[in-house]
């Protein structure tokens, strides 16, 4: 059971989804914020005490004035880690949230115990004229939709069927993502240099049909993190948490037991 609550961290009034008991798990959403009905946070709550904040500008969290860079978001995530009670924290980041989690882990954080990255963005590996990460702001929505999901007809948002509040949430998520990631598009040129500093057990999971960032990108990402495990989930695109939530939670459960 997931509860929607408020959590004030460093003066930022965060919408958070909470559930479960035990060791703390901080879950960072991807391009889209979670909602109270999201399946994956509920599944993760069976593994520990989950806190999933909507980052500023996303979902139900306002964006403070002049809070508008990746730098701000990474510092806020560090402050969230400081705020959760209990033992070592497992940090799980999806897509954009995976980038943030990787930044935090590369810089190091005393509370960080384990790291899970699911289809993260955040690094540049290809040549100058090839996009590693499909440009969701510059390509036709139909192309993005097909790349984003293994089964778009089943899982992609249908605006005609969605309620106003859901569409507004979607638009807020897109605005916030654009603000933070427009340039350079979805990556930090310096991050590959620092990923080898990650010193906690790390699992990377990749949707086998991710057309936003491919599994090949994922293997390169994983190879930069010492000892990282890498798993591919079939029948999932860029959002395994939406298309394969049980299988994803299962992989994380195995990782946490190990």
């Amino acid at each position: 059971m997931i509860r929607t609550e408020r959590l004030i961290v460093h003066g930022v009034d965060l919408e958070v989804f909470r559930g479960g008991e035990g060791d703390p798990i901080v879950l960072l959403h991807g391009m889209r914020s979670f909602s109270s009905g999201s399946r994956f946070p509920a599944l993760l709550a069976a593994l520990g005490s989950v806190v999933a904040p909507s980052l500023p500008g996303f979902g139900g969290t306002p964006r403070p004035k002049d809070f508008d860079t990746i730098f701000d978001v990474v510092h806020l995530v560090r402050a969230v880690l400081d705020s959760v009670p209990g033992a070592a924290v497992t940090l799980v980041g999806l897509s954009f949230g995976g980038w943030l989690a990787a930044e935090v882990a590369a810089a190091g954080h005393p509370r960080l115990g384990r790291l899970v990255l699911v289809d993260p963005v955040g690094i540049k590996i290809g040549d100058r004229q090839t996009a590693d990460i499909l440009d969701v702001f510059n390509r036709h929505p139909n192309e993005v939709r097909a790349a984003e999901y293994h089964d778009p007809d089943r899982f992609a948002p249908d605006f005609d069927a969605m309620e106003d509040v859901e569409i507004i949430r979607y638009a807020r998520d897109r605005d916030a993502l654009c603000l933070y990631t427009w340039h350079p598009y979805m990556y930090n040129p310096q991050l590959p240099r620092w990923l080898p500093r990650i010193a906690v057990p790390t699992l990377l999971v990749w949707g086998g049909n991710d057309g936003i960032v491919t599994p090949a990108y994922g293997r390169t990402f994983a190879a930069l993190i010492p000892g990282a495990q890498f798993s591919v989930l079939p029948n999932a695109g860029h959002h395994p948490d939406i298309e394969q939530p049980e299988a994803l939670a299962g992989l994380i459960a195995t990782f946490l037991e190990g």
Partner: peptide
């Protein structure tokens, strides 16, 4: 549409 109705901001 990515330059018009779906353009963020």
């Amino acid at each position: 549409p990515q330059f018009s109705k779906f353009l963020p901001g």
